[in-house]
Every structure is written in C-alpha cells, then in structure tokens.
C-alpha cells in the first residue's frame, strides 16, 4: 500500500511545482495581460537558485529567496515595455523574451553550464516543502482575488476604460500582477532546481510555455480553482493509460483547441458559473 503511494509521489511533486507555475501564468491573465513569460521567469529563478547552490555553495533558503527576487525583478523590468503594448503584441514580446533568456542562458556557458545544463545541484527540497509552498501560493491567490486587488484585476481585464474611470490605475495593477507572476515563477523554478538535481536550458522554453498555458486554459482563468483543477487533470490524464502518455502533446494540442472553442471559461469556472446560476434559480426571481 505504501509502495503504491510512493510510486505516485514523483507525480504529486510535479503537480505541486507546476501548480505554482500555473498560478504565475494565471495571475497575469487575470489582470488582463497577455503575457506568456512564465517559462522564462521560472528559468531565471531556477538558474539563480541553482547557481547559488552549486557555484556559491549558499544555503537553499537563500537560493530560493534569490530565485524569487530575480524572477520578480525580471518580471517588473519586463512589465515596463509591455505596458505600452496590448493583446497579440504582448504575447509576441513575451515569446521573444523567452527566446532571449534561452539563448543568453546557452551562451553564458561559464555561469549556467550552457547547453550542457547545470548539474549536481544538491537535492534539498522534498514533497513536504513543496506542499507548504504550493499551499502558500494557493492561499495568496485566493486571498488576492476576493479582495480589492482581485476586483481591480477583473475590471481591467474586462474593460480598461471602465477601470480607469473608477480610479483604478491600469499600469500599477498590471505591474503588481507581473511582480507576483515573476515571484511565483522564480520561487517554483527555484524549488524545481533543488528538487531535480539538474537543470537543462530547454526545459524552460516553448514546451513549458504550452504546458503551463494548457493548465490554465483547461482549468479556468477566473478563479483559484482553475489552475488547481487544470494542472491536476493534465498531469493525471496521461497516467491513466499508456496510449495517452505516448501522445501527451497531441492531447494537449487537441485539448487547447476544443476547450478554447467549446468551453472557453475552462472546466472549473464553467462549473462554478453553472452552480451559481442554479442557486440563483432556486431563490427565484429572474432579472
């Protein structure tokens, strides 16, 4: 019995790490920023943490703090040019950002190990640590979205002119969303570094972008339940049957097309909307 549980532990660890990255993607979309930079920010955090441990021999806590701060710093710097762009242009700029980080990473061989990656990172993070941080991130997102900042994010996402007319500073809130996104990506990138022994530059490229984006699209972009559920579904699904695992990327691809076309709010949010409508229906009194 314990053997069976232990067998699924690596999967659970992956879930916890990717949940943090999914929240990083979620929070910018929630604030109406079409940024896809999470993969690069996670890479920055992971490599910072890794270099702190391997090259500098620092304590993992310092490494995680450094990873979080560099992720956050990079995101805030990125948010300055992105504030001048919208929609498709933001998406392209952040994809370019991922490419810049990736090729700089490969080029700075002496620091990052280049294409060979960063190896021999002491493994200091286990399931319990991951669980604590993932729970913390979930709480942060939950607290955020039920307060004034969450309301401001919603207003900006749905209608910038309305948000501004009510005194909401768009630039300030989107910078805040970026800072949180970068901090989460940097932190969970750092956790990945201390959990995995080794880092590979291509681990933080287009592939991770698609994976993290898929979690949020499938789960939903409007409540904390979205990333929680979306990440779980996409990590568990390939484990259910071998053919699913072998065709993981095809499944992700088909899922993206089907969900965005037929269930654009995602599984969790569609369900929550249905639940609220049902409750209102019971109360009676249609508008």
């Amino acid at each position: 019995m314990t053997g069976a549980i232990a067998g699924y532990l690596p999967l659970f660890d992956l879930y916890l790490i990717h949940l943090g990255l999914a929240f990083s993607q979620y929070i910018v979309l929630r604030a109406g920023v079409f940024s896809l930079a999470t993969a690069a920010l996670a890479g920055i955090g992971a490599y910072t943490a890794g270099i702190f441990a391997v090259n500098l021999g620092m304590h993992p806590i310092l490494g995680l703090v450094a990873g979080t701060l560099t992720g956050m710093g990079a995101a805030v710097v990125l948010s300055i040019p992105l504030a001048r762009l919208r929609g498709v242009y933001q998406a392209i700029a952040t994809v370019a950002f991922i490419q810049i980080v990736l090729s700089l990473n490969i080029y700075s061989e002496s620091l990052t190990g280049g294409a060979m990656g960063l190896n021999n990172i002491p493994k200091t993070v286990g399931t319990v640590t991951l669980l604590v941080f993932a729970a913390g991130a979930t709480y942060l997102i939950w607290a955020l979205e039920r307060g004034r900042i969450g309301r401001a994010f919603d207003a900006i996402r749905q209608d910038e002119a309305v948000a501004a007319s009510l005194g909401i500073s768009i630039t300030r809130h989107q910078t805040l969303a970026f800072a949180l996104s970068g901090a989460l990506a940097g932190l969970f990138g750092g956790l990945e570094a201390y959990h995995a022994y080794a880092l590979d530059p291509n681990q933080f490229g287009f592939h991770l972008l698609i994976t993290v984006l898929s979690y949020v699209i499938l789960g939903g972009r409007n409540s904390v339940a979205g990333p929680l559920l979306g990440t779980a579904l996409l990590i568990i699904l390939p484990e259910l049957a071998r053919p699913l695992a072998e065709n993981r990327m095809i499944i992700y691809g088909i899922m993206l097309i089907v969900v965005i076309n037929y269930l654009p709010k995602g599984v969790a949010d569609t369900f929550l909307d249905w639940w609220r409508a049902r409750r209102l229906g019971r109360q009676g009194g249609a508008p």
Binding site: N247, G253, L256
Partner: peptide, 18 residues
C-alpha cells in the same frame, strides 16, 4: 484575438507531434 493564439498553438502542437 486571445482564443486564436491558444487554438493555433494547439493546432501547431498536434501537427508537429504527428
């Protein structure tokens, strides 16, 4: 605008995996 990017990322993924 948003959905098109997501949807075509999906299509690209399917085509290149095949």
């Amino acid at each position: 605008e948003f959905g098109g990017i997501i949807s075509s990322i999906g299509a690209g993924l399917v085509i290149s995996t095949i």
